[in-house]
Amino acid sequence: SYFPSLPGVAVWQFTSMHAVGGLDGNVDLLGVTDNGYSKQPAQATTVPSTPSQGSVSSDTDYAQNGVFIPSVTLNIRTGDDTSYASIGTYAPGESLMYDHIYIHNGYVWARYLSYSGRYHYICLGVMGGESYGSRSSSYSAPSHTYYTVRSGDSFWSIANKYGVNMYTLASNNSKSINSLIYPGESLYIK
């Protein structure tokens, strides 16, 4: 009858035109239970290993730009720790442009500014141990970026993820924004 974690909310309406009105288009319903949000929503693959006590270093941060390409599915978090909410995932092979590196509790985290204007974080690996992908510390734009369509994707969601215009995205793939796209289909981003 209503969202248990949002008192008094009985109706929810989605609009794809939220950006035009200056509204926040991100609604996180992961982890909603009868008691509100759980600390760890059961969602994607979690970080594969934990740092040993010997590898835990003091917390530090670096203003560093670069590109990270995960080799495993990684959670996108709202903060630089596994205790923060997981709000999505990056799949192996996708690229992420980051603007800051944090070392927190023995993990290496990258911060990036999402299309919604909020900072999100992804774990790059264990300090002095396992890396969850590859990164370059100085950004140079890749010559071509492709995206493999997943179930639930639309031109709008893919365009927003990569910061491109959805009409340009559709046109670059010889389609219109009303064309159907299918899971497994590869789209040229830029």
Rank of each mutant, 00 (worst) to 15 (best):
T148R: 14
G184E: 04
K39S: 09
S5V: 05
S176N: 09
P4S: 08
D61P: 00
G31K: 07
S114C: 09
P48C: 08
Q40N: 10
A159D: 14
V126E: 03
Y147W: 12
G117W: 15
L169N: 07
D99I: 13
N26S: 09
D80S: 15
M166V: 04
Y132L: 11
G184A: 13
I177C: 04
P7L: 10
Y107I: 08
R111Q: 14
M166Q: 11
A19S: 12
Y84A: 06
N26V: 10
Y121S: 08
K39N: 07
G163N: 06
A159S: 15
D99Q: 02
T46Y: 00
T82N: 06
I103Y: 04
W109L: 05
D59K: 07
S157M: 07
D99E: 13
Y162K: 09
G54M: 06
E130S: 12
L169H: 01
G93M: 05
D80W: 05
V164E: 02
G66C: 08
G21M: 04
Y188N: 09
V20M: 07
V20A: 06
G36F: 05
F155S: 11
G66V: 11
L113D: 02
V47K: 01
A10P: 00
P4M: 11
S140H: 10
L23S: 02
S71R: 06
P92G: 08
T15R: 11
L96D: 05
I101F: 11
S71H: 11
A91D: 03
R135D: 02
M97S: 14
L29H: 05
H104R: 15
I158S: 10
M97D: 14
A159P: 08
I76V: 15
L74I: 13
G54L: 08
Y112C: 00
S176P: 00
H120R: 15
P183N: 09
D61H: 15
E185V: 05
S134N: 15
V149F: 05
L74S: 04
V67R: 07
L29G: 03
Y167T: 15
A159R: 04
H18N: 09
H18R: 09
I76N: 04
V11A: 11
K39Q: 09
V164Q: 00
Y119H: 14
G79E: 03
P142H: 00
V149Q: 04
G36S: 08
L6Q: 03
N26H: 14
V149M: 05
G125V: 06
V164C: 04
S49M: 08
M97H: 12
V56G: 00
V32G: 02
A110Y: 10
D80R: 15
V47M: 08
T60N: 01
I122C: 12
L187T: 03
L113P: 00
G25S: 13
A42T: 07
I101L: 15
G25K: 03
S83V: 10
Q64N: 09
A63Y: 03
P41S: 03
P51S: 02
G152P: 02
I158C: 03
N160P: 00
A159N: 13
G22P: 12
S134V: 11
S138L: 12
G133K: 07
L113Y: 03
Q40L: 04
S138Y: 15
S116I: 08
I122N: 13
T15V: 07
S71I: 02
S83I: 14
R135E: 03
S71N: 14
M127V: 04
S134I: 06
Q13A: 15
A85N: 02
N165D: 15
P70W: 05
P48I: 07
